[in-house]
Each structure stands twice: as C-alpha cells, then as structure tokens.
Amino acid sequence: MTAIVEGNGLTKRFGTGDATVVAVDAVDVAIQESELVMIMGDSGCGKTTLISLLGCILTPDAGQIRIEGEAIDPAAQDMSVIRREKIGFVFQLFHLLPYLTALENVMIAMDLARTKTDAAENRAMELLTQVGLSERFHHRPAQLSGGEKQRVSFARALANRPKVIFADEPTANLDSRQSDNLMSLIQELRQEHQTTVAIVTHHEGLKKNADRIIQMKDGRIFGE
C-alpha cells in the first residue's frame, strides 16, 4: 500500500508566549490509498489542526508533508494546485459561499480547476443528485438545513475527483438518522470513486465504518 498523504514530525503551535498552545506535537501519520481512517479524540486535542495540516490548508511550524510521495514545500509551491487537484475538504462548519446557490457552490470548485462551465454544471447536478439534493440546486446556503449544507459541502469536496477527502466532524450537526445516511453515502461514494477518506469525529457510533482509527490526545497520536 502506498501512502496518499503522509506527515512526519508535524508540529503546529498557536499563540505566543505563555498562551502558546501546541495543537499538534511532532506527529507522524500516514493515510493509505482507499482506506477510511477515523481520527478520534477529545475536543481540543488537535484533530482539526492535524487534518488541516494534512489537507494543506494550514502551514506546519515543523515537519514534512508528502502527497503521493511528493514532498510539499508551502513556501515555494503554489498550494492552490494541490488543494484543488488532490484534496477535498468537508469543513465542520460547511463553509459554503453564502452568495452562491448549492449548484454554484459545487461548480466553483471545478471552475477553479478550469473545468468548462457546461461540464462543471452537469457534474455538479450529478453530484448533488447523488447526495439527494436534486430539489435544492438553486437554493442558497441560508435556505438549506444543516444536513443539506453538509451534503453540498460533500458534493463540492468530490467535484474535482480528489485523491483524498478530509471531513471534519461531518456528523456533528446531524441527528443519528442523518448521520447514518451520511455514512452510507460516504461508503457508496468510496465504492464508486475509490477515494481515500479521513474523518474526524468523536462519535463512537461511527467506528464500525472505519478501516482504521487514529486516537489523539494533547496533540499527539497515542494509538491506532
């Protein structure tokens, strides 16, 4: 098995002086192709920080990230290429653009990757239909429920056929029926697209879906 994303000695601190928090502390981690990893741990232990580092939306203070074996150098590289070509992110707070419709929120990701508008629109409609939002194409995020926004966010993450999808507490805003639906949706999408998935959660009930579980505590990984 090859590692899609690999981090060595990853460290991230926030704040200065006495208020410094070491959110991620010299972590070594590898996420293998097509697996579904769950990262679990108490609130504040550094899960979001870790997947942000792995997902290349946060620059580590120390350590090395490799994507498909290639070392990433945030200072020298245009990270936007990696972000749009290799990685899909489902944020805990969805982070949809409020001024775009569900369809446009999915299309924008492909637009950034220079997909032609027609093709982008077709794929966005396909993906939204797949996540059960065929009736919501032209709704703005403000007109969608939490679960619906979550699913738009998923469709957006899938849009550019990324190598790996990171999802930060995707079930935190959903009731148990919705989160079961979401998990089966993820499994389905995984079957279909062979995408690697890393999910941050502290939802014990989701464990059964995981190929592997990474336990975190105080910025470190202490068990798998």
């Binding site: 939306i57 245009d78 936007s80 290429v81 972000r83 749009r84 070509e85 992110f89 944020f91 982070h95 949809l96 653009l97 409020p98 924008i108 990701a109 950034l112 990757a113 957006r156 550019n160």
Partner: peptide, 16 residues
C-alpha cells in the same frame, strides 16, 4: 477573511 479562506481552501490561487 472567512470567504477568502474558503475560496483558497477549495483551490483558488492567490492571484485569483
């Protein structure tokens, strides 16, 4: 700031 973060996170180049 937030929206710019979102755009960048989904792959918008700084230039864009």
């Amino acid at each position: 700031t937030q929206e710019i973060g979102v755009l960048k996170a989904i792959g918008a180049a700084n230039r864009y």
